[in-house]
Design a protein around this nucleic acid. Structure first.
Lengths: 194, 194
DNA sequence: GTCTATATAATGATAGAC
DNA sequence: GTCTATCATTATATAGAC
């Protein structure tokens, strides 16, 4: 493990940044408060001036990625100027790029030791929203293609599984980029609703 | 966490079974040797009559799922009596069912605290084999469809991402079954190579 | 808000009897 | 192979000075 202090940010933000990197590389239970403090450039007890317990750091780390995704996907879904097919394609591209670029934050929500902290209520709610978004767009795309909407549920399942797969993809293939993967998955999804 | 001892198996096998369940529900670092022993129905020091260190238990747990997958996929690929399309469809179905049924062992190989143990060489080799298998079959299927084989790499990427997605799918949707998901993903994949 | 010092508990692992 | 007893280390968290 690197013990080099992170350079940017101050105080609380620096702790969050350090904890994020460490949770992703070592897991939650596998990361000690000393690890976090060392990387944030402070002593271990100083963490407790910002957080009451270790789990509170995890809460804040998990709270980071929520907003951007939900808001943008909501905006995409309701853009009446575009066809459902176009909106579906853009949502896939957006999500894949979000999952590929930056730290693999989405992966944290799937870790056993994170789920064992029983803070998954909000994460699961997010997941339901995303699932619903894909269902709506797939249904719209199928209508545009003159296909029966009964297929929407199954195809949404496939699309969701595909997008989710990106999270694990990055772990084995760290070189993967949203730039290359996003158009690939978008085209694949559009083939399914054509 | 349930501390109820597992009932089946004896000695070493019972320990592996207990450790598997616990690693999946709490992660590796989040599971103590006392947890494992309690679930196996023995005392903590008794573990060390079977394993030298904790990481050796993890090694054995990870060694479990390797064989069946690799052997069956190899047999599927080389079955000359079937078309490439049929073989591709069967491989997808086989892998999805394998990933859906039984404990989610594949997920363990993606956990940060497991990868931090630096035992991923064999796991990554497996992954490369699977990737290669899909490339070969996708290429064959594209030939049969009269499409350019240059598309094979990209489509294999999509297929692999889709199959891998099943691993995370189970975590948020514990009710998902291979029976329902396998045909869905198979049909989706076959649509992509048609 | 950060520090040093420390309390308290849990951890992986060993020794040696049976 | 399992047990009891225990060690050495490391963990989270607190107390109190600056």
């Amino acid at each position: 493990m690197s013990t080099e202090p992170v350079r940017r940010g101050t105080g609380r933000a620096r702790i969050i940044e350090a904890a994020t990197e460490l949770f992703l590389s070592q897991g939650y239970a596998g990361t000690t408060t000393r690890d976090i403090a060392a990387r944030a450039g402070i002593r271990q007890p100083s963490l407790y001036a910002h957080f009451k317990v270790k789990a509170d750091i995890l809460l804040e780390v998990l709270a980071q990625p929520i907003r951007a995704s939900v808001e943008t996907s909501a905006a995409l879904i309701e853009d009446a100027g575009l066809s459902a097919v176009e909106r579906l394609g853009r949502l896939v591209e957006f999500d894949v790029k979000l999952l590929c670029d930056g730290p693999n934050l989405a992966h944290l929500g799937y870790l056993p030791d994170v789920r064992a902290e029983q803070i998954d209520a909000e994460l699961d709610a997010q997941h339901r929203d995303l699932r619903r978004a894909y269902e709506v767009l797939v249904e719209g795309a199928l209508k545009e293609a003159g296909r029966p909407v009964e297929d929407a549920r199954g195809i949404s399942d496939v699309v969701l599984t595909l997008v989710e797969g990106v999270i694990l993809r990055r772990i084995v293939d760290p070189g993967v980029t949203g730039e290359q993967l996003a158009p690939l998955l978008r085209d694949a999804v559009l083939t399914l609703v054509r």
